[in-house]
């Protein structure tokens, strides 16, 4: 790890100014991924701007009746927030399905969104990786790729995004508020992360110097139920092999609202629009749910050793939608 200079920002504007004033600057939130990557030599900032103490640590009601989650809110606090748990169980469940208790105590909302892939080749500076070092090649595609993407990958990168929380946010139509040198803007959570294309080094649509301020989640849909389910190699403390976040409302046997997103399948949380199209207006039954999953996963292009992810994601989606449909109908 190379030496670096350090400052603590008092306001978001100050943080952005500091970023602009330094070469190779990075924002430091909880640090649970950045410090890790600096030790690996994957990240080597020359200047760190500590944004963990910014006044962005509140979960507040929005005028519309949703929740605005400050970027510095810790994952464990967000997961435990009674209002969030009440309105959006999927978000709390996704957070609690990730990492460990002590990591969640430190990791921030903004940092969770910005965490980088756990692709082993990305983490190993001695192997080629287009995401880490553009133009060097992708070691994973022809290498160990059981954990890699089945949707939306490119010849340049087959990495997956590791966040659970981001999958829930994608399904919740959340909005990400950012502040940059050119001012404030808002990006839909489902569009916040990118597909790799030929620029896999860019994980998100953030422009240089942009800082995540908050994530806003709209109020829940009438009668909707939401949940998160994740499959993993061990019972806890493991990244998703595949996961699904779902929001579903059913009235008189018909799906009136559906939002579905997959984790562990792609370079970004995979909002399943094709599946949603099948769902809304259809009879809420296993047949519909299977059709919906197939509509989305038909586009999957497994690499060989990760073929299992397609039936796994399908099964997770059908199972979760079935559960939610039952609850929605019962008003439970």
């Amino acid at each position: 790890m190379k030496t670096f200079t350090f400052e603590r920002a008092a306001t978001p504007d100050q943080a952005v100014d500091a970023f602009t004033a330094h070469e190779r600057a990075r924002y430091l939130g909880g640090g649970t991924n950045l410090v890790d990557l600096m030790k690996l030599g994957v990240e080597s900032p020359e200047h760190l701007i500590d944004v963990s103490g910014l006044p962005l640590d509140e979960v507040e009601r929005t005028p519309e009746g949703g929740w605005r989650v400050g970027a510095a809110v810790r994952n464990s606090d967000l997961a435990a927030h009674p209002g969030v748990r009440h309105d959006h169980p999927v978000l709390s469940q996704a957070l609690l399905a990730g990492a460990s208790g002590q990591l969640r105590n430190v990791a921030t909302t903004g940092g969770n969104l910005l965490q980088r892939t756990r692709c082993p080749y990305f983490q190993d500076t001695s192997t080629p990786c287009n995401k880490r070092e553009p133009g060097t090649g992708c070691s994973a595609r022809g290498g160990a790729h059981r954990d890699m993407a089945v949707l939306g990958h490119s010849p340049h990168c087959v990495a997956t995004h590791p966040s659970d929380m981001a999958v829930a946010l994608a399904a919740l139509d959340a909005q990400v508020e950012v502040l940059g040198p050119e001012g404030r803007r808002t990006v839909p959570a489902a569009d916040f992360h990118r597909l790799p294309g030929d620029t896999p080094q860019q994980d998100t649509v953030l422009r240089p110097g942009e800082l995540v301020l908050a994530v806003s989640v709209p109020p829940p849909h009438e009668g909707a139920r939401s949940a998160y389910r994740k499959a993993r190699d061990r019972a806890s403390y493991a990244f998703a092999l595949a996961s699904v976040a779902a929001v579903l409302a059913v009235r008189e046997g018909t799906v009136t609202h559906a939002a579905l997103a997959f984790g562990g399948l792609a370079h970004r949380p995979w909002r399943a629009r094709a599946a949603e199209e099948v769902l809304v207006g259809s009879a809420a039954n296993a047949h519909t749910f299977a059709r919906a999953a197939d509509a989305e996963l038909g586009a999957a292009r497994p690499l060989g050793d990760n073929e299992f992810k397609v039936p796994l994601a399908r099964s997770l989606a059908v199972n979760l939608l079935t559960t939610l449909a039952d609850r929605s109908e019962q008003g439970a």
């Binding site: 350090f6 603590r8 430091l28 909880g30 640090g31 649970t32 410090v35 890790d36 760190l48 500590d50 963990s52 464990s76 460990s100 208790g101 002590q102 990591l103 105590n105 430190v106």
Partner: peptide, 21 residues
């Protein structure tokens, strides 16, 4: 988790905390 300590009463992995921060 071997490095777990309590920071302001909350458990945290101390290996991922820069002291300066």
């Amino acid at each position: 988790g071997a490095c777990t300590v309590l920071v302001e009463g909350r458990r945290a992995n101390s290996c991922l905390l820069f002291a300066v921060a």
